[in-house]
């Protein structure tokens, strides 16, 4: 029974990762504005990677390899938002047509 629960969770995680990654790929290639594309790619970079890594941890069992996978999640979750933040900052500072793309808050 426990094996089946593990298998079910593992499959569900992989399926979720596949769906998220497909969304990310479509978003990166189809969205018109750069900030939308950053959002799409960030979904693929963080949530999908986390799902796949958790699935891998479940699949291998809790061993030294699982710790390595946990480190992969940690590193990706540290670096991907950082790069997304920097790229969006670059867009914000250099894009001349930003008014047409997003609604800016005036304070």
């Amino acid at each position: 029974m426990l094996e089946w629960i593990r298998f079910g969770t593992f499959t569900a995680l992989i399926a979720a990762a596949l769906i998220l990654e497909t969304m990310a790929v479509f978003g990166v290639n189809r969205f018109k504005y750069s900030l939308n594309r950053i959002h799409a790619s960030a979904i693929g970079d963080t949530l999908a990677v986390m799902c796949v890594s958790f699935a891998a941890i479940l699949y291998t069992g809790f061993s030294f390899l699982a710790v390595k996978f946990a480190f992969v999640i940690l590193l990706v979750w540290l670096t991907s938002p950082m790069s997304g933040h920097l790229i969006s900052l670059l867009v914000f500072r250099t894009d001349n047509n930003l008014d047409k793309e997003v609604k800016l808050w005036k304070n």
Binding site: L75, L78, T79, M82, H85, L86, L89
Partner: peptide, 15 residues
């Protein structure tokens, strides 16, 4: 002058 970048690199560089 970017706190996110500075903090992130402070964590990442030793790793």
């Amino acid at each position: 002058d970017d706190d996110i970048l500075l903090t992130g690199v402070r964590v990442l560089f030793p790793l």
